[in-house]
């Protein structure tokens, strides 16, 4: 009886579907990526943050054209002039250097460090996480112990220790924040791999004789991308802040380089008479990091709407 009823309703559904759908029409299910993009488009805060970041990136790339002055050229007669002074829309620092020009040039460095360090950390972290999670055994144990050790340090302290070892400088600061980020990505990917490798589609790929590398790159990695994209977006903000922090401590970019952390550090001596010298570069870091966090949150909600709370 039951099977008759089921068969009957299935036939009815088929019949009604046939009526409604034109046989010549191709129905393509929307891919999860497209669905996520559509959800992201409906998030005004994330979209605004995205547009802001694109504008900042453009302004930084076009710094040589847009910057009104040379970012390191000093004009002592204009030292510490406030924002709004003719020729100095955002004022000048203690050596009369135009803050707007330094901000634009500094954006290049901060964005490069942020994205570059995330890319480096992600590349190594993903590789390590994939191998450890997929092959397991002694390799996994070794990787996990190394991760435990790296994570036994507060992140910024580890970055400071690495710069102390390599010597101060922008490149070393970037390397340091990238190294600090590696265990973070390795853990995310390893966790995803551990659950994915037991899934049926991975078993199926293994059964038809696909080699390990192919399974990892074609079947497992694409399924780890969601959490990775979200983590990376949020991480760019942290890396920008950490690298600026190292420069602020005198361990990253060195004066007279126009870098936001260096500008903030130098402006600190003049907070009594000319607070704008330190307020402006700090505000730039803050706004970029805020935009990255908004975009990261939006991406997370778009990629996994269940997390939206």
């Amino acid at each position: 009886m039951a099977s008759e009823r089921v068969d009957g309703s299935v036939t009815a559904i088929r019949a009604s579907t046939k009526q409604r759908i034109d046989p010549g029409m191709h129905i393509r299910p929307r891919s999860p990526a497209r669905q996520a993009l559509q959800r992201l488009r409906r998030d005004p805060a994330a979209m605004a943050a995205g547009v802001f970041l694109v504008l900042v990136a453009l302004a930084s790339v076009l710094a040589p054209v847009l910057a009104p002055r040379d970012p390191v050229q000093t004009h002592l007669e204009h030292r510490l002039v406030p924002p709004g002074t003719p020729g100095y829309p955002l004022g000048a620092d203690d050596l009369g250097r135009d803050i707007l020009s330094r901000l634009l040039w500094g954006g290049r460095i901060s964005l490069l460090v942020g994205f570059g360090a995330v890319l480096a950390a992600m590349s190594v972290g993903v590789l390590v996480g994939l191998l450890a999670g997929y092959f397991g055994g002694w390799l996994d144990s070794l990787v996990m112990r190394l991760i435990d050790i790296l994570m036994a340090f507060p992140a910024i302290l580890l970055a400071i220790a690495i710069v102390a070892s390599l010597g101060p400088g922008l490149r070393n600061a970037m390397l340091a924040v990238a190294i600090v980020g590696i265990p973070y990505y390795a853990r995310i990917v390893r966790g995803s791999v551990l659950s994915l490798r037991e899934q049926e589609f991975v078993h199926a790929a293994r059964l038809i004789g696909a080699p390990g590398v192919r399974i990892l790159t074609r079947h497992i990695l694409p399924n780890c991308l969601g959490p990775l994209i979200v983590a990376a977006t949020l991480d760019v903000g942290w890396m920008i802040m950490a690298a600026a922090g190292l420069s602020f401590l005198g361990l990253g970019a060195q004066p007279p380089t126009a870098e936001w952390g260096v500008m903030l550090s130098q402006g600190r001596q003049f907070i009594r008479n000319a607070p704008h010298v330190s307020i402006i570069p700090g505000a730039a870091i803050f706004l970029v990091v805020l935009a990255l966090n908004l975009l990261g949150d939006g991406l997370r909600d778009a990629l996994d709407p269940r997390l939206r709370q």
Binding site: G237, G245, L264, I271, I285, F286, V289, L290, N293
Partner: peptide, 16 residues
């Protein structure tokens, strides 16, 4: 969101 986007060293200077 504002709280954890703020560079700690900049916030310190603002408070000063």
């Amino acid at each position: 969101l504002v709280g954890f986007s703020m560079p700690i060293f900049w916030l310190g200077i603002m408070l000063q």
